[in-house]
Design a binder for these strands. Sequence first.
DNA 1: GTCCAGGCTTTCC
DNA 2: GGAAAGCCTGGA
Length: 302
Amino acid sequence: MNYDLIERENAVLIKNMLDFDPKHIFECGQCFRWHLEEDNSYTAIAYGKVINVKKDGCDIIFSNTDMKDFRNIWYRYFDLDRDYGEIKRELSKDPILKEAISFGQGMRILNQEPFETTISFIISANNQIPRIKKAVELISNDLGDYAGTWNGKDYFGFPVPEKLANLDANYIKDKYRVGFRAERIKEVSRLVANKEFDLNCIYNLSREEGKNLLTTLPGVGPKVSDCILLFAFDKSDAFPVDVWVKRVMEYFYLKEETNVKHIGMHGARIFGKLAGFAQQYLFYYARELNLGKEKKQVIGNR
DNA sequence: GTCCAGGCTTTCC
DNA sequence: GGAAAGCCTGGA
């Protein structure tokens, strides 16, 4: 992809950027560390660096960085090599997705760090986004390395597996407010720290192979494994089925209540290699519509 | 083998 | 007080 990149003091700017809206990217549920500032910019830490992202008209401003880090880290992190215009054109052949995309046209799928993503989505099980964010921040602030300060807030990286593996599960539960997920966090951290489980090898596996491997971890089932594969390992055919995607698929496609396994197979069948992108547009759409229980009841009458 | 109810921590709405 | 980006266990 060709971009009009401009280097400023402690910042990089992309002129006339299409398919990039911070709100759509950071509030579609794929990440838990992006902090909304008063000026509607977002700040986060990834790969040991603090960065602030702001949409300024048609331009995107990446602050607290330089061209070197932009090329080495952020270009891949923000998935800038992918043509989202082409993906949207293809998915828009489906009228339901065309509508969903109109709500979240600036969404992109991030390439996040494997261990942090794995633990974050283990925490996400039967949980709420504000609580997930709080737990990830508590863990990082307690165990992670200081990476910088932006707008008066200190940012700490997500810790290496050894740090979590060495803690008592009760300490993890009480200190980070993760409840029954504490044992799972400790055990997965231990397996990764001891090299009994190699996360990095998943980069070279298919979605199916990666899923078979990830679901051997405690706390990682079908949904969480698909999230890890999609948000950390670039498996864009992964189709995580959470309650929101379940509702939106039942309401618009299947026209009946069914189980998540059935919905997962249906999603893979109709969206194929683009299932992951479709899932993100649909997830954002379902939440924006607040497609809750009251609408499920309409299904039988359609 | 598959399917599904019940339990799990804590907080947010 | 019910529900929440689910997973695990055990019984049918």
